[in-house]
Simulated scan of single mutants.
Amino acid sequence: MAISVGDRLPDVQLAYMGAEGPEFVSLGEKLKGRRVVIFALPGAFTPTCSSAHLPSFIRTKAQFDAKGVDEIICISVNDIHVMKLWAEMSGADAAGITMLADPAAEYTKAVGMSFTAEAIGFIDRSVRYALFADDGVVKVINVEEARGVCELSGGETMLDDLEKVMA
């Protein structure tokens, strides 16, 4: 079942390329006592992810900071090398977006957001969505119904939704 408002996010290990090589982070520890926006997408360098979804959070990062959001995290079922390169090439690193890999789709499956489209080589990829969690509990979640669009899960929509839950 897909995660929903009121649910606690799972404490899984996600990965990133650190200065000394691969590193892992406990999502539960990362969320503890913090206000965090997480957005997940089907894949690094894919068309809608690169042209709409990630850019929407890069361009709105300062507005999230002003609202008291502690961190914006992008999660994708990719390896750490791909996520690192995408972060550098897209400007996500410079903007301060945290890019985390879910290489075995452990997190994606735990929150009930995986899908497979074998015809295009997507196995256990993430549905496109964005959520806001306070101390690890989901307060807002916006899931795209259609593939290849970023209407409900973009940065601007999440900013509007935060007005309601952070007031």
Results as ranks from 00 to 15, higher is better:
Met1Tyr: 12
Met1Thr: 14
Met1Ser: 15
Val5Lys: 13
Val5Ser: 11
Gly6Cys: 05
Gly6Ala: 07
Asp7Val: 00
Asp7Asn: 11
Arg8Met: 09
Pro10Gln: 09
Pro10His: 05
Val12Asp: 09
Ala15Arg: 13
Tyr16Ser: 12
Met17Lys: 14
Ala19Cys: 06
Glu20Leu: 09
Gly21Glu: 04
Gly21Gln: 04
Glu23Tyr: 01
Glu23Ile: 00
Glu23Met: 09
Glu23Thr: 00
Val25Ile: 12
Ser26Leu: 07
Leu27Met: 10
Glu29Ala: 12
Glu29Asp: 12
Lys30Gln: 14
Lys30Val: 14
Leu31Phe: 12
Arg34Gly: 10
Arg34Gln: 12
Val36Gln: 00
Ile38Met: 08
Ile38Asn: 01
Phe39Asp: 03
Phe39Lys: 02
Ala40Lys: 04
Ala40Leu: 13
Ala40Asn: 06
Leu41Tyr: 13
Leu41Asn: 04
Gly43Asp: 10
Gly43Trp: 10
Phe45Leu: 11
Phe45Met: 08
Thr48Glu: 07
Thr48Trp: 07
Ser50Thr: 10
Ser50Phe: 03
Ser50Pro: 01
His53Ser: 10
Leu54Ser: 00
Leu54Asn: 00
Pro55Arg: 06
Ser56Phe: 06
Phe57Trp: 03
Arg59Trp: 02
Thr60Cys: 15
Lys61Pro: 02
Lys61Asn: 11
Lys61His: 13
Lys61Met: 13
Ala62Trp: 03
Gln63Thr: 06
Phe64Tyr: 15
Asp65Ser: 05
Lys67Arg: 15
Lys67Asn: 00
Lys67His: 06
Gly68Val: 07
Ile72Thr: 03
Cys74Phe: 05
Cys74Arg: 06
Ser76Leu: 09
Ser76Met: 04
Ser76Trp: 00
Asn78Glu: 00
His81Glu: 08
His81Trp: 12
His81Asn: 10
Val82Arg: 06
Met83Phe: 05
Met83Arg: 01
Met83Ser: 00
Lys84Arg: 14
Trp86Gly: 02
Glu88Asp: 15
Glu88Phe: 07
Ser90Phe: 05
Asp93Gly: 06
Asp93Asn: 15
Asp93Ala: 12
Asp93Met: 09
Ala94His: 07
Thr98Leu: 14
Thr98Ser: 14
Met99Asn: 13
Leu100Ser: 07
Leu100Ile: 00
Ala101Ile: 05
Pro103Gly: 05
Glu106Asp: 15
Glu106Gln: 13
Glu106Ile: 13
Lys109Tyr: 05
Val111Thr: 08
Val111Pro: 08
Gly112Cys: 07
Phe115Arg: 09
Phe115Leu: 14
Thr116Arg: 01
Glu118Gly: 14
Phe122Lys: 14
Ile123Ala: 13
Asp124Phe: 10
Asp124Pro: 11
Arg125Cys: 07
Val127Phe: 15
Arg128Leu: 12
Arg128Pro: 08
Ala130Cys: 11
Ala130Ile: 07
Leu131Tyr: 02
Ala133Tyr: 04
Asp134Asn: 14
Asp135Gln: 09
Asp135Ala: 09
Asp135Trp: 01
Gly136Asp: 10
Val140Glu: 02
Ile141Asn: 01
Ile141Phe: 02
Asn142Met: 01
Asn142Phe: 03
Val143Met: 00
Val143Gly: 03
Val143His: 04
Glu144Lys: 04
Ala146Phe: 02
Gly148Phe: 03
Gly148Lys: 08
Val149Gln: 14
Val149Tyr: 14
Leu152Ala: 04
Gly155Thr: 05
Glu156Asn: 09
Thr157His: 12
Thr157Gly: 06
Thr157Gln: 15
Ala167Asn: 07
Ala167Glu: 11
Ala167Cys: 07
